[in-house]
């Protein structure tokens, strides 16, 4: 349905050209959920905004690539055509629902307007539709909610309203950019449940962008791991979590504080900081932080290569070496505790 081919989105900044999205290729089918995982600054939000051309350009520009959506290249459409696609066919929800809603209008008015923008109906009809949408997203008192201002609702309620607005045009694709990051865990669980339920009801495809591997473990059929503007690993949820083939994904998985650990266990951290996208390191971007780095990694950028069916990873290590290195490292760590530091210099 949506196909992204060799997409590049660069930002022209004072520090030079930032390669926020660098040569990305992926596709999403009908009813599928794709998770895009990455740390802040990995370019995942720029990617999301590029998909429906929300990035103001300049400074963002697209030197290469295409975004095929049902036979049309979104990069080539006019602003007016894009407007028709946004909301009607591709919708988006954001991290912060408070700043996404207009604070001076009641929820009802904003929702009714959204409904009427996508369907030819009277105000009365739109109100009925709005109420049913609110019920759909699990708001128990939709009438009261319609009469509230955004600040009167809790974060979870606001995000539900945003989802209702996003769904008002029955989009084929929903892009969720960190939809639960600002919410508490219990609310997050509710929202994620809601997304799954709505997906099975409407058959919407979902692209969920997050930094939380736990969130995609629950929702996503396929996962893309991004690091400094590039896909470093791609595969099904099973591939990523159980057949991890890229040191970054592996380190990221290990860094999550798990309930399995006890007080005396030491968390495994990834040393150093994510690279500056304006001046990325030579060769592999993850090279300076990689536990398995060798001088060879510095010579050339690793390419995404097929490991299994639909499972791709960008690392020069082959599977066997990678497995044995992992074991080696784990053995070494259980011996002595590692010293944590942010700069790579040794602390006392």
């Amino acid at each position: 349905m949506l196909k992204v081919n060799h997409l590049k989105a660069y930002i022209d900044s004072i520090d030079g050209i930032v390669k926020a999205v660098d040569d990305l290729t992926f596709s999403i089918g009908k009813g599928e959920t794709i998770g895009i995982v990455g740390e802040s600054g990995s370019g995942k939000s720029i990617l999301a905004q590029s998909l429906i051309q929300l990035n103001p350009s300049p400074p963002v520009f697209y030197p290469q690539g295409e975004i095929q959506f049902e036979g049309r290249d979104l990069l080539k459409l006019s602003e007016k055509e894009l407007c028709n696609i946004r909301g009607n066919e591709i919708s988006m929800i954001f991290q912060d629902p408070l700043s996404s809603l207009n604070p001076i209008f009641k929820i009802g008015r904003q929702l009714v307007e959204a409904v009427r923008a996508h369907h030819r109906m009277t105000r009365r009809q739109a109100e009925v539709k709005a109420l049913s949408l609110l019920k759909d997203v699990g708001i128990s008192q939709p009438e009261r909610c319609m009469k509230s201002y955004p600040h009167e609702l809790s974060g979870g309620m606001r995000q539900r309203v945003m989802i209702a607005i996003a769904l008002s045009g029955h989009p084929k694709l929903l892009i969720a950019d960190e939809p639960t990051t600002a919410l508490d865990v219990t609310i997050q669980a509710q929202i994620l449940e809601l997304l799954t339920r709505l997906q099975s009801k409407y058959g919407t495809s979902i692209i969920i962008i997050t930094h939380d591997l736990g969130v995609v473990a629950r929702l996503a059929d396929r996962i893309l791991v991004m690091y400094s503007g590039k896909i470093v690993e791609e595969g099904t949820a099973e591939d990523i979590f159980y057949r991890t083939s890229m040191p970054y994904t592996w380190s990221l998985l290990r860094a999550i504080p798990s309930l399995k650990l006890t007080l005396n266990d030491r968390l495994v951290s990834i040393p150093g900081q994510p690279p500056d996208l304006a001046s990325p390191p030579q060769g592999c971007n993850f090279y300076p932080r990689c536990p398995f780095a060798s001088p060879k990694c510095r010579e050339a950028e690793p390419v995404l290569k097929e490991i299994g069916k639909g499972h791709r990873a960008a690392c020069i290590l082959d599977e066997e070496t990678f497995e044995s290195r992992k074991k080696e490292l784990e053995k070494k760590e259980s011996g002595g505790s590692m010293i944590s530091n942010g700069q790579g210099s040794v602390t006392s």
Binding site: S154, I187, A189, G214, A217, A237, E238, F241
Partner: peptide, 25 residues
Amino acid sequence: LLSAIPLPDPRAEKARNRIAIKNDF
């Protein structure tokens, strides 16, 4: 709270018996 924490483990995540969370905060 414990049941709401998403686990970075798809199989465990699917097998999990989650507490349905009522109402909003």
